[in-house]
Design a protein around this nucleic acid. Structure first.
Length: 771
DNA sequence: AGCTGGCGGGTTTTT
DNA sequence: CCCGCCAGCT
């Protein structure tokens, strides 16, 4: 066995060096939060390549997100040089599987041009299935059906061995599978499941071929793998057993998605000879933050015992701030951020966390009106917008005409007179003939026999004509796929389909936004082409579509100098100088949706809180609100029980002025003047506490929350006012003429030489910064 | 055929 | 509160 790279050795503590030096056989690394996990993985790979002389293309590293994969590849580029690093296989389970299935999937009858159906597509398939089976979608809600299907597939179960009582669900599952297969489509679970089939059943020797590809496998965030993924790994390393898994059972937060923390806790059972390393020294956070995190996680039973510690300074106390409601909370978040910025903290080193996306809106409004640059990770995703999905459906049909779901999306988009009745008749005809919708269209569009076919399908001459011209359009476009780069093809698609014309004719702020989004889509295709060329990969429409399907929220995170707003789930694996953790209330965190919730769920919430706390390097501010408007109703939750579990000497209890005032208004009958003579703010769980306003605590700009004159239609906040100068990516600089009411903040801007245009606020940048 | 408005239902986290 | 679905209207 080769010794570790000596130059790296000095930068590693003993357990880290131990893990890096290990080469042959199974290795289990428990990596506590902030314990230098990524460093260990990258150095271990570097060690394998540089010392053990393993060719890079024979190493597969699996990460949780594409972004993490990219970062790992970058770091390895710096350690090993770009040439070697490029040959490494680094990617998510899904991206890696997709890539391998393109090459080996044919052994299972999966064509190379398969498409990946996202949740939306899957739901459409279930809806279609329900209609075909004539089932009431009230009794069989698509969401519920899909959840049952996913659960089964995550455990590698098929319709015959799924654990459900209702036989209809089995039928729905079976039909769903049939639809995917005939559409040459796979869902996320198939990507893993089909790989397992290849590896375990070895059709046409494909499993052996796959196994021979890699000598070493490394898996990050192993605590969040599911049963199928674990079986994938075991099948892959069957012959050499060179499997290194890295994770932290305390950070397992994806149980709801099928992740099974027993994979890491029971790893020793499957690999009794595994070398086990524990990384317990935290290099990231202050002493107080580490102790607060430990206070929460130590209440957990079931966990593998670990001693997380840090040699770092104690640092500032963690602020636990009681606020009146979510708006007061947002104001406090804002002032915390402003204060940090004033101290010179880069906005990109600041993050605001929440449990559920629904909490983000108020926070976003506060930041926007104060002109704080920010980005929201997750929520309504770019690729889920209707116009983007439509455009992508055109592209997908061009690569894979069998994908009926995509055909249904675009057949009458833009409106071309093909109504529901025509589509239904077409679908019925396709069904009888056992062909895809595109194939059915081709038959109807045939110059001679077409007319008779149309009659068979019960389609009138006019309808048949419109269907034929749709087919002609797609046929024409399909001929161009091979002849032009994908970004140009998109342009062709949008022009020739009439989609752009239709949107331009609409001429609303919304249609304008859709056009902008489509332009952005085109540039994302262009970016892909550039990157693929740079990485020496083949540029193909399929390649782009695959990337889009497998993109995650955090992948879209930009590196700009902006504050990040995200859910705690999204924050896994990241770290920030300052973290503001909001909504730490009973029922919000731990979150209770509508289900009663058992022990296991509380355990997962606890781990989630642990993840949230340990993202912070030097400063952590935690807020909770007395009342919270969410989903249209007001929630009243006391402080989260997790707060009481943080050591008293690690935290400082505070309250906003508004919180103090609200208690006064609500509980006192006499006017005593705010902030005087109240019982001290004792314990977060004390009943009806009366907080004492912190001396000197005040608000930046509390005023804007109380609608002033004209505030009602000025939804964009004070920043975008009449007369303000703004910059637009395409039209350049202009002046705001008026603020218009819309779903989204929008304004009319006069651009010199280009006239006035309605533009959504999010496409504009203010000139000159602050108001 | 396509639009609009009313209604009811669901609202976690996401590769 | 927001969305999607349906029915009824143009």
């Amino acid at each position: 066995m080769a010794p570790p790279v000596s130059a790296l050795d000095t930068e590693l503590n003993p357990p880290q060096a131990d893990a890096v030096a290990h080469t042959t056989g199974p290795l289990l690394v428990f990596a506590g939060a902030g314990s230098g996990k990524t460093r260990v993985i990258t150095y271990r790979i570097a060690n394998l390549v540089a010392c053990a002389r393993v060719p890079p293309h024979r190493i597969l590293a699996v990460t949780f997100t594409n972004k993490a994969a990219g970062e790992m590849q970058n770091r390895l580029g710096r350690l090993l040089g770009e040439d070697l690093a490029r040959d490494l296989w680094v990617g998510t389970f899904h991206a890696t599987s997709a890539r391998l299935l393109r090459r080996h999937g044919e052994a299972l009858g999966l064509p190379r041009n398969f498409v990946i159906y996202d949740t939306d597509d899957q739901k459409a398939v279930v809806n279609r299935t329900l209609r075909a089976l004539d089932l009431d979608e009230k009794r069989y809600p698509p969401r519920v059906c899909l959840a049952a299907i996913h659960k089964a597939k995550q455990e590698l179960r098929g319709p015959d061995d799924m654990n459900v009582r209702d036989p209809w669900l089995v039928t729905i599952f079976r039909t769903y599978e049939e639809q995917l297969r005939t559409a040459n489509a796979v869902d996320f679970e198939d990507l893993i499941g089909l790989m397992v089939t290849l590896l375990e059943q070895n059709p046409a020797g494909a499993g052996d071929a796959l196994r021979r590809r890699f000598d070493y496998l490394l898996v990050d965030e192993f605590q969040d793998t599911n049963a199928a993924q674990y079986r994938f790994l075991k099948a892959f390393v069957r012959d050499h057993r060179n499997l290194c898994v890295v994770g932290d059972d305390d950070q397992s937060i994806y149980r709801w998605r099928g992740a099974d923390v027993r994979n890491i806790r029971g790893f020793k059972h499957d690999f009794p000879d595994a070398h086990v390393v524990k990384l317990e020294q935290n290099y990231r956070s202050t002493g107080r933050i580490v102790r607060a995190a430990l206070g929460v996680i130590e209440r957990s039973h079931e966990r593998v015992p670990k001693e997380l510690w840090t040699a770092n300074a104690e640092g500032a106390p963690i602020d636990i701030v009681a606020t009146r409601d979510e708006r007061d909370e947002a104001a406090h978040v804002l002032s915390t951020i402003q204060e940090a910025r004033a101290r010179g903290v880069d906005p990109k080193e600041i993050a605001v966390f929440y449990r559920v996306h629904a909490q983000s809106r108020v926070l976003e409004e506060a930041l926007r009106s104060a002109n704080v640059p920010y980005q929201i990770v997750g929520g309504t995703k770019f690729y889920e917008r209707a116009e983007i999905k439509n455009a992508l459906s055109y592209l997908r049909v061009l690569t894979n005409p069998a994908s009926d779901i995509d055909v249904l999306r675009i057949i009458n988009t833009p409106a071309r007179g093909i109504g529901a009745t025509s589509v239904e008749r077409l679908a019925a005809f396709a069904d009888r003939a056992h062909v895809s919708l595109m194939e059915a269209l081709a038959r109807i569009a045939e110059p001679r026999a077409g007319a008779a076919t149309a009659r068979t399908a019960d389609l009138g001459a006019a309808a048949a004509g419109r269907l034929a011209s749709f087919h002609a359009l797609m046929d024409q476009l399909a001929r161009r796929v091979a002849n032009m780069p994908p970004s140009d093809l998109l342009g062709e698609v949008l022009e020739r389909s009439g989609y752009l014309t239709a949107l331009r004719a609409e001429d609303t702020a919304e249609s304008e936004a859709r056009l902008e989004n489509l332009a952005e889509l085109k540039s994302s295709l262009y970016d892909y082409e550039q990157e693929a060329v740079a990485a020496g990969e083949e540029v193909s429409l399929e390649g782009y579509l695959e990337r889009v399907s497998l993109q995650s929220d955090v992948d879209g995170m930009k590196d700009g100098s902006r504050v990040t707003l995200m859910t705690v789930h999204g924050a896994k694996g990241l770290e920030f100088e300052l973290v503001v953790l909001t909504g730490m209330e009973q029922d919000m965190f731990p979150y209770r949706g509508m289900n009663p919730g058992g022990d296991h769920e509380l355990e997962e919430e606890r781990r989630l809180a642990y993840v949230a706390i340990t993202r912070a390097r030097s400063r952590l501010v935690i807020t909770h609100a007395e009342t919270r408007q969410i989903f249209g109703t007001t929630r009243l939750g006391g402080p989260s029980p997790f707060l009481a579990q943080m050591p008293a000497d690690a935290v400082t209890q505070k309250a906003t002025a508004a919180r103090g005032a609200s208690s006064l208004g609500r509980f006192m009958t006499h006017d005593d003047g705010a902030g005087h003579g109240y019982a001290p703010w004792r314990h977060p769980q004390a009943p009806s506490p009366t907080p004492q306003p912190l001396p000197g605590e005040r608000y930046v700009d509390q005023e804007f929350f109380h609608d002033g004159p004209g505030a009602a239609d000025d939804t964009s906040g004070p920043a975008l006012r009449r007369g303000a100068r703004v910059v637009h990516a395409q039209f350049g600089e202009g002046e705001i003429k008026s603020v218009v009411e819309s779903n989204e903040p929008a304004v009319v801007v006069a651009f010199p030489g280009r006239g006035e245009k309605k533009i959504l606020a999010r496409f504009l940048t203010l000139v000159g910064g602050g108001p």
